[in-house]
């Protein structure tokens, strides 16, 4: 009996073992990360208007982040936001945004990459503001 109890506790301990933000994987409709939403006030862009900026963040700006282990997944996840926004799948785009923001925060705080990381963060914040307006009209 004690063995089964230990097994149950071990399984329960696996909760939230992922390095990614659990918010992206919740069972309710997605809301963008609060820290990104707090960065922008005023009127929001339509989600589709963020498409080009997200592609720029996923390609040109991500290249400057070098070969860090998280830079590749960040590029893929940011491309994912652009793809979902392009298909008007705002809930899926919001979940990819949560994952991308978490990957961006996990990058090393190197001075050489700071301008590009800040630029990507600003694009994420504008996207979060835009998705919030679209998901909560």
């Amino acid at each position: 009996m004690k063995r089964y109890l230990a097994l149950l506790l071990a399984l329960a301990g696996c909760s939230d073992a992922s390095p990614f933000a659990p918010e992206a994987f919740t069972r309710i409709p997605c809301r963008p990360p609060a820290n990104l939403m707090a960065m922008i006030t005023g009127p929001a862009f339509a989600p589709l208007e963020m498409h080009s900026a997200l592609l720029h963040a996923a390609n040109r700006m991500s290249l400057a982040l070098g070969t860090d282990a998280d830079a590749g997944p960040l590029k893929n996840a940011t491309n994912g936001i652009a793809a979902h926004i392009g298909a008007s799948e705002n809930d899926a785009a919001c979940r990819m945004l949560s994952i991308s923001a978490d990957l961006l925060e996990g990058l090393p705080d190197a001075p050489a990459t700071l301008p590009d990381r800040d630029g990507i963060r600003l694009i994420f914040a504008l996207t979060a503001h835009s998705l919030t307006a679209a998901l909560d009209p």
């Binding site: 149950l8 399984l11 329960a12 696996c14 909760s15 939230d16 073992a17 992922s18 990614f20 659990p22 992206a24 994987f25 997944p73 893929n76 996840a77 994912g80 899926a92 979940r95 990819m96 994952i99």
Partner: peptide
């Protein structure tokens, strides 16, 4: 019950086992 859970979107996954 213990809900062994696997969630995925694109190539990203999250596993948990909440009570």
């Amino acid at each position: 019950f213990l809900a062994l859970t696997h969630k995925s979107i694109a190539s990203y996954t999250h596993r948990s086992a909440p009570l």
